[in-house]
Amino acid sequence: MIDVKGVHKSFGDLEVLKGIDLDVPAGAVTVILGPSGSGKSTLLRSINHLEKVDRGLVRIDGELIGYKRRGNKLHELREREILRQRSQVGFVFQTFNLFGHLTVLQNVVEAPVSAQGRKRSEVEPYARELLERVGVGDKADVYPRQLSGGQQQRVAIARALALKPKVLLFDEPTSALDPELVGEVLDVIKELARDGATMVVVTHEIGFAREIADTVVFIDGGRIVESGPPREVLDNPVHERTRAFISKVL
């Protein structure tokens, strides 16, 4: 479903991604682990072209993301096309980024209507259903600030789901939460995984990774150090760096 090939990315002189290959089959959950500054967020952001890559390709469901091929050359797509592609990818941010001046329901309804041209009358019941599903059905008409961090993040997940995306990307979805609120957000993500959503999750929660991941990818210094099923990568890491990281986080 998601196919990343030879992706390089630099910020000025700093090379953050040094050739990343990643393959996420449909319905699979991939968890990306790595120390801060290892490039894992940048990788996630380049999957929906929030970050332009310098070299390499990203494909979702066979469609080249952010570029089109003309002859032998790649041309960046027009903004309108890029936005259309993004509306097929759900992205959940570390800091939620809910629209503070809109109610919870308006937050969820906004993109399906304005980005996908769906009818408000059709989207609204679906949005309420999603809010119900993530456990904030009674909060549809309040503003984000009136919610706890965990509730806000669950609304953000509902907002991403409302686009009926092909894939879901989570960028450290629990890192900004108080410890006692982490569980409720992880539960929602786990349930999505059980329902067969294709997901890539950047996280520091090793236990959670063990529970939901089909594949764990460990990144350090802009390269994939090792990847495989959680049993291998988390319990019997081959590389010294992976071992050091896991012993530190656990």
């Binding site: 309108r80 936005l83 941010f93 980024n97």
Partner: peptide, 26 residues
């Protein structure tokens, strides 16, 4: 906050609407 614009972009909201619906009111 830059996160607002980023979220709008990630959701695929059209550029003009990002400005008038998300950024300007705030």
């Amino acid at each position: 906050d830059a996160g607002q614009l980023e979220a709008a972009a990630a959701l695929g909201i059209p550029r003009i609407r990002q400005f008038f619906r998300i950024v300007l009111p705030q």
